[in-house]
Design a protein around this nucleic acid. Sequence first.
DNA 1: GAACTTGCTGAATTG
DNA 2: CAGCAAGTTC
Length: 805
Amino acid sequence: MDFLSTLNPPQREAVVETEGPLLILAGAGSGKTRVITYRIVYLIAERNVAPHNILAVTFTNKAAQEMRERVEKLSSGFGQRSAPLISTFHSLCVRILRQDIQALQEGYTRSFTIYDQDDSVRLIKACIKDLGYDDKQLGQRAVQSAISAAKNRGDDAESYAAHVEYGDEKRSAIARVFRLYEERLRNNNALDFDDLIIKTVQLLRRVPEVRERYNDKFKYILVDEYQDTNSLQFALIRFLTEKQQNICVVGDEDQSVYKWRGADITNILNFEQHYPNAKAIRLEQNYRSTQNILDAAGSVVKNNTERKGKTLWTANPAGESIRYYQAFDGDAEARFVAAKIEEHRRVNPNLRAAILYRTNAQSRVFEEALRRSRIDYNIVGGFSFYERAEVRDIVSYLKLAMNPHDSIALMRIINSPARGLGKQTLDEIERRAKDYAVSHWETIALLTDGSTPGLSPRATTALKNFQKIITDLVTATTSAASSDSPVSDVVKAAILDTGYANALKAENTDEAEARVENLQELVNAAVDYDAQDGGEGLRDFIDHAALVSDSDQYKQDAPVTLMTVHSAKGLEFPLVFIVGLEDGLFPHSRSATDPAELEEERRLAYVAITRAERFLYVSHAMKRRVYGEEMASEPSQFLNEMPLELMEDLSRGASWLSFARKSSTLENKHAIRALKGLGENARPEKIYTGKTYDSADSIAEFFRKRGQQMNPSAAQPDPPVIRRAAASSSPSGSSRPASRSSNSSGASSSATGDFTPGSHVRHPKYGRGLVLRREGTGDSAKLTVSFPGFGQKKLIEKYAGLEKA
DNA sequence: GAACTTGCTGAATTG
DNA sequence: CAGCAAGTTC
């Protein structure tokens, strides 16, 4: 088969080893997607496997979409009648459940509703309220993520409750919310995202007949980004491969960046134990990036200890140096990026560019700068189309039309547009629904048929009105389903016949007009859906709306794409800007306390760098608005981990980079002196800073300082060049009793008063740092200090042993 | 019941 | 600086 000749030997092996378990360790840019797609086509064309016996699973729609397109392109000409199933974990599960969920016998029907995170939070909020908990103490979001984390660990409400330690009020409250939440989901015939996987696993575990059927169906299974699978996804794959063992997984441990979502890296590390006859193939040749870019990526990620180690190499030329820019503030950084894009465009108008940031909130300044420069851009993430309020409203109408017991959907739209059903009435409905233990829809029926008094005549009329709107929509939906009429007609009905469009038009504002346009866009989506063959009706359309996510708006040919590093995984661009490389931002401050999380941040930096094919820019700003407040920021330690000699400094004036370079030669000198045994006397002036050591405290301080002097990294002067992030060390000072008392000695306490934000301090262990924030006063004063190379630390002023610098 | 005002708290990454 | 929740006014 001639297309194999375009592959290198390990790639070819990965394609033709079709039988039995196979692990493909594929480094960044090593042609992973290519191998998967070729493998699928090879199975069909050379091994005569029926396409419908092949399943390929990905995490994102984007990846699935790309794979589908590439398979189609490669196999155009073979004229297959069926296509392989290339799907995300979630849509695979929806597919299975829509078919077989009744076999679980938990009361769920095939017309179950899918709750996305927003719906799920709403339901949790209601549960918190109904259990009488203070929603300030029990943040809805926090509870939602605790429950989701538990579910992904494989815990249900019962086992979560069983693990709560005695006296842990918060957890036991969460446990009760969890239980109620599950109960409500069931009453609403609804599944949240996690349930989609959980229920499928339960189904396969408990019902041998179903398990067997899917085992027979999916004879060859491929899993992409295997390092990101969690225990549930692992279980799912295990069950699906029980009978046959033709499982091929592809992944890269250096690109594991979803631990926070429960991804379990041991799935890939122990694959060979899970599937004893497994073969492993490593793809180590990178085709994407220049040598310099690859060197930068490698030199950052090698600072991680939790890794097997892999040598990625390339035959590509060294290429351009990495360009570095230190900006005055966030705006200046954005202007710099826009200017550079223009500059590149003048030489090469078609150079695709990506701007990668750590958090979505950073996108705004870049959008503004690009708009000012009249550069077209495409944004991935943030609020997606299907997350817009008006779109969600209409989707809720449609969900309700298919499942009137979906109380979340009902409560969402019962009074939008406003139809005279205010808080009073809604509270009444909620109360009764709870009392009677029936759905809100049934409660409404009880309230309007006259059998249940309690509502004002006005409210009853309004409620009847609403009831009619929904029953009409239900009729329209069912008749459309039976007559096979287009989905777009029903969508139009949901927009027009509910009075939604009219209410918007009556507003007569620009904003309302934009909303109308968005709804028009939804109708267009439905028309598109109708046009493609294989559409399965409204239900399928709505499932799509629920499972589609922001990263799916990625347009491959957009000239400039803005997105988070997470959403950039799997993509490549000739020109890449990694922005906001600052301590506390990237690496993110929430990762500061846990070394494992810092390693994940570092892998994320690795992912970001390896997106670049030819040009890579890295930048940071010296100050930035956070919470609407200007905050000083220090360069990211990851910058320090890049090979400084490969970097070209484009900053105006003296930058951190020029500093870092000087001090690294300085450091080398120190190192040489230390080797010659002169280290101890290297900087005597630092020991005798004009103080007389005349008290016990002062003498203790002398020994403390001398102790640091022995430790070269602690003795580093300004912009220290740190070899390795010392994330494991805890903020010191408190561990050193002597320092505590020394601080109360007259000499240093005079300086204690003015550690104000913006001033510099010197810490016995971390060296020079910048005070970012000061909270509290007196003995309890806490400082947030950023130490270049060590990250941000929270210190108790009294114990930290700080000096003014 | 709806529209408006104030005041508070809180953002990491995703299907 | 948001976005949201509770309070206030019409």
